[in-house]
Protein backbone atom coordinates (compact mmCIF):
# COMPACT_ATOMS: atom_id res chain seq x y z
CA UNK A 1 0.00 0.00 0.00
CA UNK A 2 2.78 2.33 0.96
CA UNK A 3 4.21 1.87 -2.54
CA UNK A 4 1.43 4.03 -3.91
CA UNK A 5 2.67 7.61 -4.07
CA UNK A 6 -0.38 9.06 -2.37
CA UNK A 7 -0.10 6.65 0.56
CA UNK A 8 3.52 7.53 0.97
CA UNK A 9 2.80 11.25 1.07
CA UNK A 10 0.05 10.58 3.59
CA UNK A 11 2.34 8.43 5.71
CA UNK A 12 4.97 11.18 5.70
CA UNK A 13 2.36 13.76 6.66
CA UNK A 14 1.19 11.60 9.55
CA UNK A 15 4.73 11.07 10.64
CA UNK A 16 5.40 14.81 10.53
CA UNK A 17 2.35 15.47 12.66
CA UNK A 18 3.40 12.80 15.14
CA UNK A 19 6.93 14.18 15.46
CA UNK A 20 5.70 17.79 15.81
CA UNK A 21 3.46 16.67 18.69
CA UNK A 22 6.37 14.89 20.33
CA UNK A 23 8.63 17.92 20.03
CA UNK A 24 5.99 20.50 21.01
CA UNK A 25 6.89 20.53 24.69
CA UNK A 26 10.63 21.03 24.12
CA UNK A 27 12.10 23.83 26.19
CA UNK A 28 13.46 26.60 23.92
CA UNK A 29 17.13 27.30 23.41
CA UNK A 30 18.56 30.67 22.41
CA UNK A 31 21.97 31.16 20.85
CA UNK A 32 23.13 34.77 20.61
CA UNK A 33 26.32 36.38 19.44
CA UNK A 34 27.89 38.75 21.97
CA UNK A 35 31.06 40.83 22.14
CA UNK A 36 33.44 37.93 22.77
CA UNK A 37 31.72 35.01 21.12
CA UNK A 38 28.49 33.05 21.03
CA UNK A 39 26.28 32.25 24.00
CA UNK A 40 23.86 29.32 24.31
CA UNK A 41 21.14 29.55 26.99
CA UNK A 42 18.23 27.43 28.13
CA UNK A 43 16.45 26.62 31.36
CA UNK A 44 15.90 23.13 32.58
CA UNK A 45 15.61 20.84 35.50
CA UNK A 46 17.13 17.56 34.53
CA UNK A 47 18.54 16.82 31.12
CA UNK A 48 21.51 18.56 29.59
CA UNK A 49 20.57 20.21 26.31
CA UNK A 50 23.70 22.14 25.32
CA UNK A 51 26.76 20.20 24.22
CA UNK A 52 30.33 20.60 23.03
CA UNK A 53 30.90 18.99 19.63
CA UNK A 54 34.40 20.11 18.70
CA UNK A 55 36.89 22.90 19.33
CA UNK A 56 34.73 25.60 17.72
CA UNK A 57 31.33 23.90 17.44
CA UNK A 58 28.52 23.66 19.99
CA UNK A 59 25.09 22.09 19.76
CA UNK A 60 21.74 22.59 21.44
CA UNK A 61 19.01 20.01 21.01
CA UNK A 62 15.41 19.25 21.85
CA UNK A 63 13.68 15.93 21.30
CA UNK A 64 14.00 12.38 22.47
CA UNK A 65 17.14 11.87 24.57
CA UNK A 66 18.00 8.61 22.78
CA UNK A 67 17.89 10.22 19.37
CA UNK A 68 19.73 13.33 20.48
CA UNK A 69 22.42 11.11 21.91
CA UNK A 70 22.90 9.16 18.68
CA UNK A 71 23.16 12.33 16.62
CA UNK A 72 25.45 13.97 19.14
CA UNK A 73 27.79 10.96 19.18
CA UNK A 74 27.80 10.85 15.40
CA UNK A 75 28.66 14.55 15.19
CA UNK A 76 31.46 14.24 17.76
CA UNK A 77 32.87 11.14 16.10
CA UNK A 78 32.89 12.72 12.64
CA UNK A 79 34.43 15.96 13.87
CA UNK A 80 37.03 14.17 15.99
CA UNK A 81 38.21 11.81 13.28
CA UNK A 82 38.35 14.68 10.79
CA UNK A 83 40.29 16.80 13.27
CA UNK A 84 42.62 13.90 13.97
CA UNK A 85 43.34 12.83 10.39
CA UNK A 86 43.54 16.35 8.96
CA UNK A 87 43.46 19.27 11.35
CA UNK A 88 41.08 21.14 13.61
CA UNK A 89 40.84 23.84 10.93
CA UNK A 90 39.38 21.29 8.51
CA UNK A 91 36.45 20.52 10.78
CA UNK A 92 33.59 22.63 9.49
CA UNK A 93 30.02 22.84 10.66
CA UNK A 94 28.81 23.41 7.13
CA UNK A 95 30.24 20.11 5.94
CA UNK A 96 29.19 18.26 9.08
CA UNK A 97 25.59 19.39 8.66
CA UNK A 98 25.20 19.27 4.88
CA UNK A 99 27.10 16.11 4.05
CA UNK A 100 26.68 13.96 7.12
CA UNK A 101 23.84 14.76 9.48
CA UNK A 102 21.19 16.12 7.14
CA UNK A 103 21.18 13.20 4.63
CA UNK A 104 21.03 10.67 7.45
CA UNK A 105 18.13 12.45 9.19
CA UNK A 106 16.28 12.89 5.92
CA UNK A 107 16.46 9.24 4.94
CA UNK A 108 15.48 8.10 8.44
CA UNK A 109 12.47 10.42 8.24
CA UNK A 110 11.36 9.24 4.81
CA UNK A 111 11.80 5.53 5.33
CA UNK A 112 8.37 5.13 6.81
CA UNK A 113 8.97 1.61 8.14
CA UNK A 114 11.93 2.72 10.21
CA UNK A 115 12.10 5.11 13.15
CA UNK A 116 12.77 8.79 12.45
CA UNK A 117 15.01 10.94 14.62
CA UNK A 118 12.84 12.75 17.14
CA UNK A 119 15.23 15.64 17.41
CA UNK A 120 15.73 19.21 16.37
CA UNK A 121 19.29 20.51 16.49
CA UNK A 122 20.82 23.96 16.71
CA UNK A 123 24.52 24.33 15.94
CA UNK A 124 26.88 27.26 16.12
CA UNK A 125 30.45 27.53 14.93
CA UNK A 126 32.67 30.36 16.01
CA UNK A 127 34.89 31.93 13.36
CA UNK A 128 37.90 34.19 13.65
CA UNK A 129 35.63 37.23 13.25
CA UNK A 130 31.88 37.70 13.88
CA UNK A 131 31.35 37.67 10.11
CA UNK A 132 32.55 34.08 9.97
CA UNK A 133 30.29 32.81 12.73
CA UNK A 134 27.74 30.29 11.57
CA UNK A 135 24.38 29.43 13.12
CA UNK A 136 22.62 26.43 11.68
CA UNK A 137 19.49 24.41 12.48
CA UNK A 138 18.75 20.88 11.35
CA UNK A 139 15.21 19.62 11.71
CA UNK A 140 14.03 16.03 12.14
CA UNK A 141 13.43 15.76 8.37
CA UNK A 142 16.97 16.85 7.55
CA UNK A 143 15.98 20.37 6.53
CA UNK A 144 18.77 22.85 7.18
CA UNK A 145 18.17 26.49 7.98
CA UNK A 146 21.17 28.76 8.22
CA UNK A 147 19.13 31.95 8.64
CA UNK A 148 16.07 32.71 10.72
CA UNK A 149 12.59 31.34 10.14
CA UNK A 150 11.52 34.75 8.94
CA UNK A 151 14.32 35.06 6.40
CA UNK A 152 16.51 37.75 7.92
CA UNK A 153 19.91 37.05 6.46
CA UNK A 154 23.02 37.26 8.63
CA UNK A 155 21.37 37.80 11.94
CA UNK A 156 23.81 36.88 14.68
CA UNK A 157 21.46 34.73 16.71
CA UNK A 158 19.40 31.60 16.29
CA UNK A 159 16.69 29.89 18.29
CA UNK A 160 15.29 26.43 18.70
CA UNK A 161 11.88 25.64 20.09
CA UNK A 162 9.20 22.98 20.22
CA UNK A 163 6.75 24.86 18.04
CA UNK A 164 7.09 27.13 15.05
CA UNK A 165 5.07 29.85 16.69
CA UNK A 166 7.32 29.88 19.73
CA UNK A 167 10.48 30.02 17.59
CA UNK A 168 9.06 32.82 15.45
CA UNK A 169 8.21 34.94 18.48
CA UNK A 170 11.65 34.36 19.94
CA UNK A 171 13.22 35.54 16.70
CA UNK A 172 10.93 38.53 16.57
CA UNK A 173 11.94 39.41 20.11
CA UNK A 174 15.65 39.00 19.39
CA UNK A 175 15.49 41.07 16.21
CA UNK A 176 14.61 43.99 18.48
CA UNK A 177 16.47 43.15 21.65
CA UNK A 178 19.67 41.56 20.44
CA UNK A 179 22.79 43.72 20.58
CA UNK A 180 25.71 42.26 18.62
CA UNK A 181 28.49 43.64 20.79
CA UNK A 182 26.83 43.28 24.18
CA UNK A 183 28.89 42.21 27.17
CA UNK A 184 28.28 38.70 28.46
CA UNK A 185 25.93 39.58 31.38
CA UNK A 186 23.74 41.64 29.03
CA UNK A 187 23.71 38.82 26.49
CA UNK A 188 22.66 36.38 29.21
CA UNK A 189 19.77 38.65 30.14
CA UNK A 190 18.62 39.03 26.55
CA UNK A 191 18.87 35.29 25.96
CA UNK A 192 16.89 34.49 29.10
CA UNK A 193 14.19 36.95 28.05
CA UNK A 194 14.11 35.30 24.63
CA UNK A 195 13.75 31.94 26.33
CA UNK A 196 10.79 33.25 28.33
CA UNK A 197 9.15 34.66 25.19
CA UNK A 198 9.51 31.24 23.61
CA UNK A 199 8.20 29.42 26.66
CA UNK A 200 5.18 31.71 26.98
CA UNK A 201 4.25 30.93 23.38
CA UNK A 202 3.87 27.24 24.17
CA UNK A 203 1.19 25.08 25.78
CA UNK A 204 -2.40 25.86 26.74
CA UNK A 205 -2.42 29.65 27.18
CA UNK A 206 0.10 30.33 24.46
CA UNK A 207 0.64 33.98 23.61
CA UNK A 208 0.40 34.68 19.89
CA UNK A 209 1.95 38.13 20.04
CA UNK A 210 5.09 39.37 21.73
CA UNK A 211 4.21 39.76 25.43
CA UNK A 212 5.11 43.07 27.10
CA UNK A 213 8.50 43.26 28.83
CA UNK A 214 7.05 43.27 32.35
CA UNK A 215 5.18 40.02 31.67
CA UNK A 216 8.31 38.47 30.20
CA UNK A 217 10.35 39.45 33.25
CA UNK A 218 7.69 38.13 35.61
CA UNK A 219 7.48 34.79 33.79
CA UNK A 220 11.25 34.56 33.70
CA UNK A 221 11.66 35.14 37.42
CA UNK A 222 9.02 32.53 38.23
CA UNK A 223 10.78 29.98 36.03
CA UNK A 224 14.22 30.86 37.38
CA UNK A 225 13.04 30.09 40.90
CA UNK A 226 12.33 26.49 39.98
CA UNK A 227 14.82 25.60 37.27
CA UNK A 228 18.53 25.76 36.65
CA UNK A 229 20.14 27.92 33.97
CA UNK A 230 22.08 25.90 31.48
CA UNK A 231 24.52 27.98 29.50
CA UNK A 232 27.74 27.67 27.56
CA UNK A 233 29.86 29.95 25.41
CA UNK A 234 32.09 29.61 22.39
CA UNK A 235 34.78 32.18 23.02
CA UNK A 236 36.48 33.97 20.15
CA UNK A 237 39.80 35.06 21.56
CA UNK A 238 41.38 32.52 23.78
CA UNK A 239 44.84 31.02 23.84
CA UNK A 240 43.33 27.56 23.85
CA UNK A 241 42.16 25.81 20.69
CA UNK A 242 39.08 24.68 22.60
CA UNK A 243 36.59 27.52 22.59
CA UNK A 244 33.71 25.86 24.42
CA UNK A 245 33.17 26.73 28.07
CA UNK A 246 30.28 25.84 30.36
CA UNK A 247 28.95 28.73 32.45
CA UNK A 248 27.94 27.48 35.89
CA UNK A 249 24.47 28.41 37.16
CA UNK A 250 25.79 30.27 40.23
CA UNK A 251 28.11 32.44 38.16
CA UNK A 252 25.19 33.43 35.93
CA UNK A 253 22.72 34.18 38.68
CA UNK A 254 25.06 36.64 40.35
CA UNK A 255 25.13 38.70 37.15
CA UNK A 256 21.37 38.72 36.50
CA UNK A 257 19.34 41.90 36.56
CA UNK A 258 16.32 41.08 38.67
Amino acid sequence: MIEEPYRWVEAIANRREYIETQLAAGSPIAAVGYRDGILFVTLGRARQKIFEIYDRIAMGAIGHPGDIERLRMAAIELASTEGFTRSAADVSLRRLAHYSLSPVMKSAFEQVYGPPYLARLLFAEIGSSPKEDLFLRIDYDGAIAADGLTAQPRQRFAVLSGTRQSAELMEKFLQKAHVTDAALPDAVNTALDAWSVGRMAMGENASKELPDPAAVRKHRDEQLAGAGIEAAVLERDTKSAIRYRILPDEELRSSLQC
Binding site: R70, M73, A74, E77, L78, E82, R95, S100, L101, V104
Partner: peptide, 9 residues
Amino acid sequence: MDKPPLALD
Protein backbone atom coordinates in the same frame (compact mmCIF):
# COMPACT_ATOMS: atom_id res chain seq x y z
CA MET B 1 34.23 14.15 5.81
CA ASP B 2 33.87 10.47 5.14
CA LYS B 3 30.68 8.48 5.11
CA PRO B 4 28.38 8.78 8.12
CA PRO B 5 29.77 6.70 10.95
CA LEU B 6 28.37 3.53 12.43
CA ALA B 7 27.14 5.58 15.34
CA LEU B 8 24.09 6.33 13.21
CA ASP B 9 23.36 2.63 13.02
